[in-house]
Protein backbone atom coordinates (compact mmCIF):
# COMPACT_ATOMS: atom_id res chain seq x y z
CA UNK A 1 0.00 0.00 0.00
CA UNK A 2 1.07 3.62 0.25
CA UNK A 3 4.09 4.86 2.12
CA UNK A 4 1.98 6.58 4.76
CA UNK A 5 0.41 3.36 5.94
CA UNK A 6 3.70 1.94 7.22
CA UNK A 7 3.26 4.02 10.36
CA UNK A 8 0.38 3.09 12.63
CA UNK A 9 -2.64 5.18 11.72
CA UNK A 10 -3.66 8.14 13.87
CA UNK A 11 -7.28 7.11 13.86
CA UNK A 12 -8.53 3.65 13.19
CA UNK A 13 -12.22 2.82 12.91
CA UNK A 14 -13.11 -0.86 12.81
CA UNK A 15 -16.52 -2.32 11.93
CA UNK A 16 -18.34 0.63 13.47
CA UNK A 17 -22.08 0.02 13.88
CA UNK A 18 -24.47 2.76 14.99
CA UNK A 19 -28.06 1.90 15.76
CA UNK A 20 -31.19 3.82 16.59
CA UNK A 21 -33.71 1.79 18.57
CA UNK A 22 -37.23 2.85 17.61
CA UNK A 23 -40.67 1.56 18.43
CA UNK A 24 -40.80 -0.19 15.08
CA UNK A 25 -37.50 -1.94 15.48
CA UNK A 26 -33.86 -1.01 15.42
CA UNK A 27 -32.52 1.10 12.58
CA UNK A 28 -28.93 0.46 11.62
CA UNK A 29 -27.59 3.82 10.43
CA UNK A 30 -23.94 2.79 10.16
CA UNK A 31 -23.15 -0.77 9.28
CA UNK A 32 -19.61 -2.08 9.79
CA UNK A 33 -17.74 0.98 8.64
CA UNK A 34 -13.96 0.63 8.75
CA UNK A 35 -11.26 3.10 7.76
CA UNK A 36 -7.97 4.60 8.91
CA UNK A 37 -6.65 8.13 8.91
CA UNK A 38 -2.87 8.43 8.76
CA UNK A 39 -0.83 11.14 10.46
CA UNK A 40 -1.15 14.40 8.59
CA UNK A 41 -3.61 12.94 6.12
CA UNK A 42 -6.78 14.58 4.85
CA UNK A 43 -9.52 11.99 4.47
CA UNK A 44 -12.61 13.10 2.59
CA UNK A 45 -15.90 11.49 3.53
CA UNK A 46 -18.61 11.80 0.91
CA UNK A 47 -22.09 10.49 0.36
CA UNK A 48 -25.62 11.75 -0.06
CA UNK A 49 -27.87 12.99 2.73
CA UNK A 50 -28.58 10.14 5.10
CA UNK A 51 -25.60 8.05 4.01
CA UNK A 52 -24.09 8.37 7.49
CA UNK A 53 -21.25 10.83 6.94
CA UNK A 54 -22.01 13.14 9.85
CA UNK A 55 -22.99 10.20 12.02
CA UNK A 56 -19.54 8.70 11.53
CA UNK A 57 -17.97 11.94 12.73
CA UNK A 58 -20.35 12.19 15.68
CA UNK A 59 -19.71 8.56 16.69
CA UNK A 60 -15.94 9.09 16.67
CA UNK A 61 -16.07 12.08 18.99
CA UNK A 62 -18.77 10.57 21.17
CA UNK A 63 -21.47 13.07 20.33
CA UNK A 64 -24.19 10.74 19.06
CA UNK A 65 -27.63 12.11 19.82
CA UNK A 66 -29.58 9.64 21.95
CA UNK A 67 -31.22 7.24 21.27
CA UNK A 68 -28.44 6.65 18.75
CA UNK A 69 -25.70 4.44 20.13
CA UNK A 70 -22.59 2.60 19.07
CA UNK A 71 -23.74 -1.01 18.84
CA UNK A 72 -20.51 -2.54 17.66
CA UNK A 73 -17.01 -1.94 16.43
CA UNK A 74 -14.06 -0.02 17.80
CA UNK A 75 -12.49 3.41 17.44
CA UNK A 76 -8.78 3.75 18.16
CA UNK A 77 -6.92 7.05 18.48
CA UNK A 78 -3.16 6.58 18.33
CA UNK A 79 -3.38 3.07 19.76
CA UNK A 80 -5.86 3.96 22.47
CA UNK A 81 -9.43 2.73 22.31
CA UNK A 82 -11.81 5.69 22.66
CA UNK A 83 -15.28 4.40 21.81
CA UNK A 84 -15.87 2.93 25.29
CA UNK A 85 -14.46 5.76 27.41
CA UNK A 86 -16.46 7.39 30.18
CA UNK A 87 -18.20 10.68 29.43
CA UNK A 88 -15.62 12.55 31.52
CA UNK A 89 -12.60 10.97 29.79
CA UNK A 90 -14.16 11.51 26.36
CA UNK A 91 -14.72 15.17 27.21
CA UNK A 92 -10.98 15.56 27.74
CA UNK A 93 -10.22 14.04 24.35
CA UNK A 94 -12.82 16.12 22.59
CA UNK A 95 -11.38 19.54 21.87
CA UNK A 96 -7.93 18.63 23.18
CA UNK A 97 -7.04 15.80 20.82
CA UNK A 98 -9.90 15.93 18.33
CA UNK A 99 -11.13 19.35 17.20
CA UNK A 100 -14.41 19.94 15.47
CA UNK A 101 -15.70 22.36 12.84
CA UNK A 102 -19.42 22.22 12.15
CA UNK A 103 -21.47 23.38 9.21
CA UNK A 104 -23.18 26.40 10.64
CA UNK A 105 -20.72 28.87 12.13
CA UNK A 106 -23.50 30.81 13.81
CA UNK A 107 -24.73 27.97 15.97
CA UNK A 108 -21.28 26.69 16.91
CA UNK A 109 -20.36 29.98 18.59
CA UNK A 110 -22.05 31.25 21.71
CA UNK A 111 -23.70 34.58 20.81
CA UNK A 112 -23.47 35.88 24.40
CA UNK A 113 -19.68 35.69 24.74
CA UNK A 114 -17.01 37.56 22.84
CA UNK A 115 -14.71 35.61 20.59
CA UNK A 116 -11.89 36.28 23.06
CA UNK A 117 -13.82 34.74 25.95
CA UNK A 118 -14.65 31.64 23.95
CA UNK A 119 -11.14 31.13 22.63
CA UNK A 120 -9.41 31.80 25.96
CA UNK A 121 -11.80 29.50 27.81
CA UNK A 122 -11.15 26.70 25.34
CA UNK A 123 -7.39 27.15 25.45
CA UNK A 124 -7.25 27.26 29.25
CA UNK A 125 -9.56 24.27 29.62
CA UNK A 126 -7.13 22.10 27.71
CA UNK A 127 -3.73 23.69 28.15
CA UNK A 128 -2.24 24.97 31.38
CA UNK A 129 -1.40 28.57 30.53
CA UNK A 130 -2.09 31.95 32.08
CA UNK A 131 -4.95 34.12 30.88
CA UNK A 132 -2.48 36.53 29.31
CA UNK A 133 -0.65 33.78 27.46
CA UNK A 134 -3.96 32.29 26.31
CA UNK A 135 -5.04 35.65 24.91
CA UNK A 136 -1.74 35.99 23.09
CA UNK A 137 -2.22 32.55 21.56
CA UNK A 138 -5.81 33.34 20.64
CA UNK A 139 -4.78 36.51 18.79
CA UNK A 140 -2.01 34.64 16.96
CA UNK A 141 -4.54 31.98 15.92
CA UNK A 142 -7.09 34.49 14.66
CA UNK A 143 -4.34 36.20 12.75
CA UNK A 144 -3.30 32.87 11.25
CA UNK A 145 -6.81 32.01 10.06
CA UNK A 146 -6.91 35.35 8.27
CA UNK A 147 -8.94 37.68 10.45
CA UNK A 148 -7.76 41.22 9.79
CA UNK A 149 -6.83 43.30 12.85
CA UNK A 150 -7.12 40.23 15.07
CA UNK A 151 -5.90 42.02 18.20
CA UNK A 152 -8.81 44.45 17.99
CA UNK A 153 -11.50 42.14 16.64
CA UNK A 154 -10.95 39.45 19.24
CA UNK A 155 -13.15 41.40 21.65
CA UNK A 156 -16.08 41.45 19.19
CA UNK A 157 -19.12 39.22 19.50
CA UNK A 158 -19.83 36.54 16.89
CA UNK A 159 -22.59 38.60 15.27
CA UNK A 160 -20.04 41.27 14.37
CA UNK A 161 -18.43 38.84 11.95
CA UNK A 162 -19.65 37.81 8.50
CA UNK A 163 -20.33 34.14 7.72
CA UNK A 164 -16.90 33.48 6.25
CA UNK A 165 -15.12 35.28 9.10
CA UNK A 166 -17.22 33.39 11.65
CA UNK A 167 -16.19 30.09 10.12
CA UNK A 168 -12.58 31.21 10.46
CA UNK A 169 -13.20 31.86 14.14
CA UNK A 170 -14.67 28.35 14.45
CA UNK A 171 -11.56 26.91 12.82
CA UNK A 172 -9.39 28.88 15.24
CA UNK A 173 -11.50 27.51 18.08
CA UNK A 174 -11.16 23.94 16.83
CA UNK A 175 -7.40 24.29 16.59
CA UNK A 176 -6.89 26.25 19.80
CA UNK A 177 -5.90 23.19 21.87
CA UNK A 178 -3.62 21.89 19.12
CA UNK A 179 -5.56 18.69 18.38
CA UNK A 180 -4.12 15.77 16.44
CA UNK A 181 -7.27 15.32 14.40
CA UNK A 182 -9.82 17.83 13.14
CA UNK A 183 -13.25 16.61 12.11
CA UNK A 184 -14.78 19.17 9.76
CA UNK A 185 -18.45 18.48 9.04
CA UNK A 186 -19.57 20.41 5.94
CA UNK A 187 -17.39 23.40 6.88
CA UNK A 188 -18.19 25.34 3.71
CA UNK A 189 -21.77 24.38 2.94
CA UNK A 190 -23.25 27.50 4.53
CA UNK A 191 -20.87 29.80 2.66
CA UNK A 192 -20.80 31.37 -0.77
CA UNK A 193 -18.60 29.87 -3.48
CA UNK A 194 -16.09 32.67 -3.17
CA UNK A 195 -15.79 32.09 0.57
CA UNK A 196 -15.56 28.31 0.30
CA UNK A 197 -12.17 28.36 -1.36
CA UNK A 198 -10.75 30.65 1.31
CA UNK A 199 -12.00 28.52 4.19
CA UNK A 200 -10.83 25.25 2.66
CA UNK A 201 -7.38 26.72 2.04
CA UNK A 202 -7.11 28.03 5.58
CA UNK A 203 -8.21 24.70 7.04
CA UNK A 204 -5.86 22.70 4.88
CA UNK A 205 -2.81 24.93 5.34
CA UNK A 206 -3.14 25.35 9.08
CA UNK A 207 -3.61 21.63 9.64
CA UNK A 208 -0.61 20.86 7.44
CA UNK A 209 1.52 23.32 9.43
CA UNK A 210 0.59 21.71 12.71
CA UNK A 211 0.65 18.15 11.43
CA UNK A 212 -2.99 17.62 12.30
CA UNK A 213 -4.99 15.08 10.31
CA UNK A 214 -8.35 16.10 8.91
CA UNK A 215 -11.54 14.16 8.39
CA UNK A 216 -13.44 16.33 5.92
CA UNK A 217 -17.12 15.48 5.66
CA UNK A 218 -18.88 17.04 2.69
CA UNK A 219 -21.22 16.31 -0.16
CA UNK A 220 -19.24 18.59 -2.46
CA UNK A 221 -16.96 16.40 -4.56
CA UNK A 222 -15.17 19.46 -5.91
CA UNK A 223 -13.98 20.37 -2.42
CA UNK A 224 -12.86 16.79 -1.80
CA UNK A 225 -11.07 16.54 -5.13
CA UNK A 226 -8.96 19.59 -4.34
CA UNK A 227 -8.37 18.99 -0.66
CA UNK A 228 -8.30 15.35 0.33
CA UNK A 229 -5.53 12.78 0.03
CA UNK A 230 -7.92 9.87 0.19
CA UNK A 231 -11.67 9.70 -0.09
CA UNK A 232 -14.23 7.37 1.46
CA UNK A 233 -17.63 6.97 -0.20
CA UNK A 234 -20.56 6.01 2.00
CA UNK A 235 -23.84 4.60 0.78
CA UNK A 236 -26.75 3.73 3.06
CA UNK A 237 -24.48 3.55 6.11
CA UNK A 238 -21.93 1.29 4.45
CA UNK A 239 -18.55 1.96 2.94
CA UNK A 240 -18.77 1.61 -0.83
CA UNK A 241 -15.27 2.59 -1.84
CA UNK A 242 -12.19 4.11 -0.23
CA UNK A 243 -8.94 5.05 -1.88
CA UNK A 244 -6.61 7.79 -3.16
CA UNK A 245 -8.69 10.73 -4.27
CA UNK A 246 -7.34 10.87 -7.83
CA UNK A 247 -8.16 7.19 -8.46
CA UNK A 248 -11.63 7.37 -7.00
CA UNK A 249 -12.62 10.59 -8.76
CA UNK A 250 -11.16 9.78 -12.16
CA UNK A 251 -11.64 6.01 -12.31
CA UNK A 252 -14.27 5.00 -9.82
CA UNK A 253 -14.68 1.25 -9.48
CA UNK A 254 -17.84 0.92 -7.42
CA UNK A 255 -20.86 1.46 -9.69
CA UNK A 256 -22.33 3.86 -7.13
CA UNK A 257 -19.21 6.02 -7.07
CA UNK A 258 -19.09 5.96 -10.85
CA UNK A 259 -22.73 7.06 -11.02
CA UNK A 260 -22.12 9.79 -8.46
CA UNK A 261 -19.17 11.20 -10.39
CA UNK A 262 -21.13 11.17 -13.63
CA UNK A 263 -23.99 13.00 -11.97
CA UNK A 264 -21.86 16.01 -11.05
CA UNK A 265 -21.75 18.77 -13.62
CA UNK A 266 -18.22 20.08 -14.03
CA UNK A 267 -16.81 23.27 -15.45
CA UNK A 268 -15.12 21.53 -18.36
CA UNK A 269 -17.49 18.81 -19.50
CA UNK A 270 -19.25 18.88 -22.81
CA UNK A 271 -21.85 16.13 -22.36
CA UNK A 272 -25.42 17.20 -22.94
CA UNK A 273 -26.93 14.99 -20.27
CA UNK A 274 -25.70 14.06 -16.84
CA UNK A 275 -25.48 10.41 -15.92
CA UNK A 276 -28.30 9.72 -13.57
CA UNK A 277 -28.68 6.97 -11.02
CA UNK A 278 -32.29 5.80 -11.10
CA UNK A 279 -34.26 5.90 -7.86
CA UNK A 280 -32.97 7.20 -4.57
CA UNK A 281 -31.07 5.90 -1.55
CA UNK A 282 -33.13 3.37 0.45
CA UNK A 283 -34.56 4.33 3.82
CA UNK A 284 -32.91 2.79 6.83
CA UNK A 285 -35.88 0.52 7.50
CA UNK A 286 -35.88 -0.81 3.95
CA UNK A 287 -32.27 -1.54 3.08
CA UNK A 288 -32.34 -4.30 0.49
CA UNK A 289 -30.80 -7.67 1.12
CA UNK A 290 -27.31 -8.26 -0.21
CA UNK A 291 -25.58 -5.17 -1.56
CA UNK A 292 -27.50 -2.05 -0.47
CA UNK A 293 -27.02 -0.55 -3.92
CA UNK A 294 -28.30 -3.54 -5.93
CA UNK A 295 -31.77 -2.18 -6.91
CA UNK A 296 -30.18 0.88 -8.53
CA UNK A 297 -27.03 -0.75 -9.88
CA UNK A 298 -26.62 -0.98 -13.66
CA UNK A 299 -24.29 -3.98 -13.33
CA UNK A 300 -26.25 -6.01 -10.79
CA UNK A 301 -26.15 -9.81 -10.89
CA UNK A 302 -27.63 -12.60 -8.78
CA UNK A 303 -25.02 -12.66 -6.08
CA UNK A 304 -25.53 -8.94 -5.33
CA UNK A 305 -29.14 -9.63 -4.30
CA UNK A 306 -28.23 -12.43 -1.93
CA UNK A 307 -24.91 -11.64 -0.28
CA UNK A 308 -23.47 -8.42 1.04
CA UNK A 309 -20.01 -7.67 -0.43
CA UNK A 310 -17.09 -7.02 1.91
CA UNK A 311 -14.50 -4.35 1.20
CA UNK A 312 -12.14 -5.95 -1.30
CA UNK A 313 -8.54 -4.71 -1.50
CA UNK A 314 -7.53 -3.60 -4.97
CA UNK A 315 -4.13 -3.11 -6.53
CA UNK A 316 -3.97 0.69 -6.27
CA UNK A 317 -4.41 0.71 -2.50
CA UNK A 318 -8.09 1.25 -2.68
CA UNK A 319 -10.88 -0.88 -1.29
CA UNK A 320 -14.19 -1.52 -3.01
CA UNK A 321 -17.27 -3.25 -1.63
CA UNK A 322 -18.56 -4.79 -4.84
CA UNK A 323 -18.85 -8.35 -6.11
CA UNK A 324 -17.65 -7.29 -9.55
CA UNK A 325 -14.10 -7.25 -8.26
CA UNK A 326 -14.13 -10.48 -6.30
CA UNK A 327 -13.12 -12.82 -9.13
CA UNK A 328 -10.36 -10.52 -10.31
CA UNK A 329 -8.77 -10.57 -6.88
CA UNK A 330 -8.85 -14.33 -6.78
CA UNK A 331 -7.01 -14.49 -10.08
CA UNK A 332 -4.27 -12.11 -8.92
Amino acid sequence: MTAISNKPPLLSVRDLVVEFPTRRGTLRALDQVSFDIAEGEVLGMVGESGAGKSLTGAAIIGLLEPPGRIAGGEVWLRGERIDNLSVEKMRRIRGRRIGMVFQDPLTSLNPLYTVAEQLIETIRTHIDVSEKEARKRAIALLDRVGIPAAARRIDDYPHHFSGGMRQRVVIALALSAEPELVIADEPTTALDVSGQAQIIDVLKDICAERGASVMLITHDMGVIAETADRVAVLYAGRMAEIGPVRDVVQAAEHPYTAGLMGAIPTLTQTADRLTQIPGSMPRLNAIPQGCAFNPRCPRVFDRCRAERPELIARASGRHVACWLYETETENV
Partner: peptide, 20 residues
Protein backbone atom coordinates in the same frame (compact mmCIF):
# COMPACT_ATOMS: atom_id res chain seq x y z
CA UNK B 1 -10.89 30.79 -10.19
CA UNK B 2 -12.44 30.13 -6.80
CA UNK B 3 -14.68 27.22 -7.73
CA UNK B 4 -13.48 23.83 -6.56
CA UNK B 5 -13.80 21.46 -9.48
CA UNK B 6 -13.62 17.75 -10.08
CA UNK B 7 -11.23 18.16 -12.97
CA UNK B 8 -8.18 17.81 -10.69
CA UNK B 9 -6.19 20.04 -12.94
CA UNK B 10 -3.74 20.50 -10.12
CA UNK B 11 -4.15 24.25 -10.31
CA UNK B 12 -3.82 26.11 -7.08
CA UNK B 13 -7.04 28.01 -6.70
CA UNK B 14 -6.70 31.76 -6.51
CA UNK B 15 -8.78 32.52 -3.47
CA UNK B 16 -11.15 35.41 -3.76
CA UNK B 17 -9.89 38.25 -1.64
CA UNK B 18 -12.19 40.25 0.58
CA UNK B 19 -15.92 39.95 0.88
CA UNK B 20 -18.97 41.40 -0.78
Amino acid sequence: AAVPDLALSGRRRTPVTGEI
